[in-house]
């Protein structure tokens, strides 16, 4: 009897494969963590490495658009060491954007104007970008961990 194929675990052409059973081979869980870290560093990069082109493009475009719009609306980028709990949470949310967060801080892009409603919503957009990238990281980790490790032609 043939069992129905599980599309979430099927390998696609071009998938890189490793056998976890042979000595000296990479740990699959460690590989999934590496893919997750790559996904955090730059939005969409983890899915690009996993050859999920559409998801890579979608995550990249959405996260970058949110950050750009947030900066255009003169939102604020949270910094570490805040006395306020919400400030600390905002920092961790912003940190989810990976390299884009450090780039925004280095370039001092936002020039925040929190006196206006647009500035406040811009701040929320930048934080939402970080959270969306965290979703991308989780998705990249699950995709990498779920794949069957077979070498495809």
């Amino acid at each position: 009897m043939n069992e129905p194929a599980d599309p979430s675990t099927e390998s696609k052409p071009g998938d890189v494969a490793f056998s976890a059973q042979e000595p000296g081979e990479s740990n699959p869980r460690l590989q999934a963590i590496v893919f997750a870290l790559i996904a955090w560093m730059l939005p969409g990069l983890g899915h690009l490495v996993l050859r999920r082109w559409k998801k890579a493009a979608a995550f990249f475009l959405v996260v970058v658009a949110f950050i750009v719009l947030g900066c255009l609306m003169r939102g604020d980028v949270f910094e570490p060491g805040s006395d306020d709990t919400l400030g600390t949470l905002g920092f961790f949310a912003d940190l989810g954007s990976g390299a884009l967060y450090f780039l925004a801080r280095a370039l001092e892009l936002p020039r925040a104007d929190l006196s206006s409603a647009a500035g406040n919503y811009g701040t929320r957009l930048i934080a939402a970008a970080g959270i969306l990238n965290v979703l991308a990281v989780i998705d990249a980790f699950e995709t990498a961990a779920r794949r069957k490790f077979t070498r495809c032609a």
Partner: peptide
């Protein structure tokens, strides 16, 4: 850009809705 609170909120809701639906 100087937007009112309602317009900013609408824009935020629209963007987040589209992003979550797309992903």
């Amino acid at each position: 850009m100087r937007l009112s609170h309602l317009v900013s909120m609408t824009l935020f809701a629209l963007l987040v809705s589209i992003a979550f639906a797309a992903i």
